[in-house]
Simulated assay, not measured.
Amino acid sequence: MKYRQKVGYVSLALATIGLSLSTLAADPVTPNLTDKLSQLLKQEMRSVQSAMATIHVSMVTGDHKQVATQAQQIHDSFILKQSLTKQDKKDLMSAVPKGFVKLDKDFHRLAAGLAEAAKDKDTQKQYELYNEMTGSCIACHSKYVSDRFDGLAEQ
């Protein structure tokens, strides 16, 4: 079996796992967030969305440097690393379940791995990690932000 075909099957499996997590949907976290935290998370998600799009184009054009830069920016955008007050951090931790925090930490860990794979010019590893990151997005949005992504909530 060709390597790309194997990677395709792995990607499909990850997406399936992510979508099946939606059946375990928790209550959406959005209503529990303060206005400030809601805005910070939306800002972070817009940055992640833009970076993911740039990474995709950069991967298929072999621009490893851009993949590394964008993936590192995703890693560094982690909301818990931002300049939050002690009260903001307390509010965040009381608004989101541990599973949300774990998915978010895992996502940013994957981004760091993607940056490393790009620095190593390992296109196949970049592809695998990018697909894992996408599966992580789907899993989180299905489970914790179903009020904003009703197309995922129906899965």
Rank of each mutant, 00 (worst) to 15 (best):
Val57Leu: 07
Glu44Ala: 11
Gln82Asn: 12
Gln87Ser: 04
Leu84Tyr: 03
His108Cys: 12
Ala111Val: 00
Asn131Gln: 14
Val101Arg: 13
Gln72Asp: 10
Ala153Met: 04
Arg109Thr: 15
His141Gly: 12
Ala112Tyr: 06
Thr69Pro: 07
Ile74Ser: 07
Gly151Ser: 04
Ser83Ile: 04
Ser83Ala: 13
Ser22Tyr: 01
Ala53Glu: 04
Tyr3Lys: 10
Val96Ile: 09
Phe149Thr: 02
Leu129Gly: 00
Gly113Pro: 03
Leu84Lys: 06
Ala118Ser: 12
Pro31Cys: 02
Lys121Met: 07
Thr16Glu: 04
Val57Glu: 14
Asp120His: 09
His56Ile: 02
Ala71Gln: 01
Met93Val: 11
Tyr127Ile: 09
Tyr3Gln: 15
Lys89Trp: 02
Leu110Phe: 10
Thr16Trp: 00
Ala153Lys: 08
Val29Asp: 01
Pro97Trp: 09
Arg4Asp: 15
Asp27Leu: 03
Ser136Thr: 15
Arg46Glu: 11
Ser38Lys: 13
Met133Ala: 10
Ser58Asn: 13
Asp91Cys: 11
Ser142Ile: 08
Lys125Ala: 12
Met1His: 06
Val145His: 06
Ala26Asp: 11
Ile138Cys: 00
Val145Ile: 10
Phe100Ile: 02
Leu92Asp: 05
Arg148Met: 14
Gly113Ser: 11
Ser142Gln: 02
Leu14Asn: 06
Leu103Trp: 13
Leu41Lys: 12
Gln82Tyr: 10
Asp122Arg: 05
Leu103Asp: 10
Thr123Lys: 06
Leu14Met: 12
Thr34His: 07
Ser83Thr: 10
Val7His: 00
Asp88Pro: 04
His75Glu: 13
Asp91Val: 13
Ala71Leu: 03
Lys90Tyr: 13
Thr123Cys: 03
Ser11Met: 13
Arg148Thr: 11
Glu154Lys: 12
Val10Arg: 12
Leu37Tyr: 13
Ser47Gly: 15
Lys65Leu: 07
Thr134Cys: 06
Tyr130Trp: 06
Gly135Leu: 08
Leu40Gly: 00
Gln155Asn: 14
Ala111Thr: 00
Leu12Trp: 03
Gly62Arg: 01
Val67Ile: 03
Asp120Ser: 12
Gln49Met: 02
Gln39Val: 13
Arg46Thr: 14
Gly62Met: 10
Asp91Gly: 08
Asp76Cys: 04
Ser38Gly: 15
Thr69Ser: 08
Lys65Ile: 03
Asp63Trp: 02
Leu80Val: 08
Lys121Trp: 07
Ser146Arg: 06
Gln49His: 06
Asp88Val: 01
Ala13Gly: 14
Ser83Asp: 15
Asp35Gly: 07
Ser11Tyr: 01
Val67Met: 00
Met45His: 09
Cys137Tyr: 03
Asp106Arg: 02
Glu44Thr: 10
Thr85Lys: 05
Asp122Ile: 00
Gly18Val: 08
Leu152Lys: 00
Val10Trp: 04
Thr34Trp: 01
Lys42Asn: 15
Val29Leu: 05
Gly113Val: 00
His75Asp: 10
Gln155Ser: 11
Tyr130Gln: 12
Lys143Phe: 06
Thr23Asn: 08
Ile74Cys: 08
Ile74Asn: 02
Ser11Asn: 15
His141Ala: 08
Ser146Val: 05
Gln126Met: 15
Tyr3Leu: 14
Gln82Pro: 07
Lys81Met: 12
Met59Leu: 13
Met93Pro: 03
